[in-house]
């Protein structure tokens, strides 16, 4: 049923692109953050369709959940939803849009001129592609060192965030 898939793809792609356009053009930063959540949710559906259920769940829980809540929290904490209303710089907007169109055209040309991939079918393994089990096995064997390195990165980022938001005046008394 290729017709059915292309309908689903078209609907999801339309939702994602429209939400992305609204995200970068809307004047209210809170609306912007909510449109980004819509983009992430539609990408999560794509991940489900591409045999990546674990990544799809992480996308919803971590990205659309935790990270966007952090964004909304900071927007509301700073009362910043109106401060960025000015769109800007007359000459920068057409240049940016022209460059982006060039990238899209380049991508389309590359896709059209590349030999099609021989798409692999479902392997006859007992482990399901994209499941938590498959990701875990890869993460703790081949990718063990990057996994540990990234945990140190998270720790450093956490300490950095705490240090940067500390009140400067209290520093001398410590």
């Amino acid at each position: 049923m290729p017709g059915f898939e292309i309908v689903i793809f078209g609907a999801l792609a339309l939702i994602a692109v429209v939400a992305a356009v609204l995200m970068i053009t809307t004047r209210n930063a809170v609306h912007s953050a909510l449109f980004l959540v819509v983009v992430m949710a539609s990408l999560a559906v794509f991940f489900l369709g591409l045999w990546a259920p674990f990544v799809a769940m992480v996308q919803v829980a971590v990205y659309a959940g935790a990270i966007m809540v952090l964004f909304l929290f900071v927007i509301m904490l700073l009362g910043a939803e109106k401060t960025g209303a000015r769109m800007l710089r007359t000459w920068q907007t057409p240049v940016a849009i022209g460059l982006a169109l060039a990238v899209v055209v380049l991508g389309a040309l590359l896709l059209l001129n590349t030999a099609p991939i021989e798409v692999a079918d479902r392997p006859a393994a007992e482990i399901v592609m994209g499941s938590a089990e498959a990701i875990g096995l890869a993460l703790y064997s081949v990718w063990l060192f990057p996994f540990e390195a990234v945990s140190i990165l998270l720790l450093v980022a956490m300490i950095g965030a705490v240090v940067m938001t500390r009140d400067e005046r209290k520093k001398t008394s410590v």
Binding site: I24, G84, L88, L99
Partner: peptide
């Protein structure tokens, strides 16, 4: 590309 446009044309850091 839309993300890149957003980085280039908006001035709100968030």
């Amino acid at each position: 590309s839309l993300g890149a446009i957003g980085v280039l044309i908006r001035r709100n850091a968030i």
